[in-house]
Amino acid sequence: MTQESFQFELVEEVDEDLKELKILLSCCQCPGNRRRLELAICEFEVTLRAKRTWAWFPLKSYEWSGFEYESPVITLDFHVPGAGTLPNEDIHCDFRTDSFDLKIWNVEWPEDPGVKYHHRVRKTRLMRDIEPQRCSVEAVGHHVYVKLQKVYDPRHGYCAWPDLAAGSKRKPFKYREDAPDGGLMDFLEGEYEKYEGYDGFRYDIGKAMEQVHRCEPVSGFLD
């Protein structure tokens, strides 16, 4: 199966799901259920539109702020000409615990008048977790602002982000209130398995794990 035929099948599948949801909505009487169906239809319409968009152009440059310690919100500023005049349905952003997916349709650049560009920015493995329900996207003038609400750490507050995404690098240790050791042992075990073959580093991690078992302080980790 070619990539094009696979994409076509995905579009057909989502289109059928959307039709079923609209039939359910027409039969539904309960206001609460109608609202949930309307939200689901909106999500499916965005998904269908994204799958029907065959060519995406990345927005590689942006400015960001709020990455410093104690700042609760990270703001990403993307330069997009005429963003403030685009319809609401042409700008959409999906937020997950450690990722976001920004889509912008029908952007006309001054350098290429008359041509509509569709832009997409997908960032996965964010440096730290965010609260999806409190994140937002806003278009003002020639800018699109993506606002990421940091997760409040019970010990350290709103932590600093050394970078937006971790990429292939290790993400910072995340303290867990529900674990007796704050999740440190699980973190060290994951690191131990990851560095198989690096005996010196695995020895250091194993030593740190023993210290955690004995409730001794581990060098390099804040209390």
Rank of each mutant, 00 (worst) to 15 (best):
120 R>L: 01
22 K>N: 07
36 R>E: 11
194 K>W: 13
186 D>F: 08
206 G>C: 11
222 L>G: 07
100 F>I: 14
169 K>M: 13
68 E>K: 10
61 S>R: 13
8 F>A: 15
8 F>K: 15
71 S>G: 01
217 P>V: 01
170 R>S: 13
71 S>K: 09
179 A>E: 15
26 S>E: 09
178 D>F: 06
127 M>W: 08
16 E>T: 10
20 E>W: 05
194 K>P: 02
51 K>Q: 11
156 H>F: 15
51 K>D: 04
156 H>D: 14
209 M>T: 13
143 H>F: 00
115 V>A: 04
106 N>P: 02
198 Y>F: 15
79 H>I: 07
76 L>C: 08
121 V>L: 08
32 G>C: 02
86 L>Q: 05
175 Y>L: 06
52 R>N: 11
70 E>S: 05
174 K>N: 10
103 K>G: 02
116 K>Y: 11
139 A>V: 05
55 A>N: 04
86 L>N: 10
184 L>I: 08
145 Y>L: 15
159 C>I: 12
91 I>M: 07
94 D>P: 00
11 V>H: 01
151 V>L: 13
141 G>H: 00
22 K>W: 04
12 E>F: 04
51 K>H: 11
95 F>E: 02
201 F>I: 15
21 L>Y: 01
133 Q>R: 11
179 A>I: 09
201 F>E: 13
67 F>D: 09
35 R>W: 07
151 V>R: 15
170 R>T: 13
137 V>A: 03
